[in-house]
Design a protein around this nucleic acid. Structure first.
Lengths: 135, 135
DNA sequence: ATTATTGCAAAGTGTTTGCATAACA
DNA sequence: TGTTATGCAAACACTTTGCAATAAT
């Protein structure tokens, strides 16, 4: 996890059943899942998988860029199959989280100037509101 | 936090020493503090205060609008003396969190149209970058 | 054969809660 | 006096870790 002196070789990721199962569930979910939601799903097919394996793999795959880690403010970590740049909207009523394409009516102009002395390298944008279903 | 039927009476907040001490530390801090940072500070003056009192009071005062709760993605909760609308920037190197005025080079155009079926009522914007001190 | 990965249990964070006692208004 | 607030300890939810056994390359 550390590019030390000069030869940084990323750990190869072995394709274990557990890994495969976890990846499948995250990718076919239409929701952004928490670790234990993934656990419950994978468990149906691999009853002996352990929760820590799920945690470890979600983290590892997120590090590898296979999945996206989703850390909404004040909430449990979730994992997302969509690794493209996008924002999120959370329904304050039912808690559902939906993706928001970067261009969906949102115009964010950072200019090139630093904000408050910061050299800004990125930002995250999170909407809240009421989803279609809830109104 | 809930205006139910008709007689909503907010609990009166008693001004205890603990409450006062906590409030003071948060207000005079130039940082956004976590509960246990507040605890350590208040403890210097009130050695017998308990951590749960700190937690309870920070939450209660945030509910009352005296302080602002600050939930940056994937991080510990912090509390903020500034209850006005503003954004935050976090230094990826030292972890410092600074306020960003709503108009600081940021142009966010929501239009009036809903995003992805959401009736958007708010958003939160969080910058990351390198702070002045760190570069 | 080598080394990444697993399952399990245990430990770690950060936060909340129940309860009897104390302090406020 | 009536009720909110406190301290303590214990519970909680989520996540990480140590370790010996196992599986992938």
């Amino acid at each position: 996890m550390n590019a030390s002196n000069h030869t940084y070789r990323p750990e190869p990721l072995r394709m274990t059943n557990q890994r495969k199962g976890i990846l499948e569930e995250v990718q076919k979910a239409r929701q952004h899942l928490t670790a234990d939601e993934v656990y419950e799903l994978v468990r149906k097919k691999q009853p002996r998988i352990s929760l820590s394996t799920v945690y470890r793999n979600l983290e590892k795959m997120a590090d590898a860029g296979i999945l996206a880690r989703l850390e909404l403010s004040g909430n449990q970590r979730r994992y997302d199959w969509n690794t493209d740049m996008h924002h999120h909207a959370r329904c304050v009523r039912c808690g559902a989280v939906r993706d928001v394409p970067v261009d969906a009516g949102v115009e964010l102009d950072l200019g090139s100037q630093a904000i408050n002395g910061f050299a800004v390298s990125g930002f995250r944008l999170e909407f809240k509101g009421i989803c279609e279903k809830c109104r």
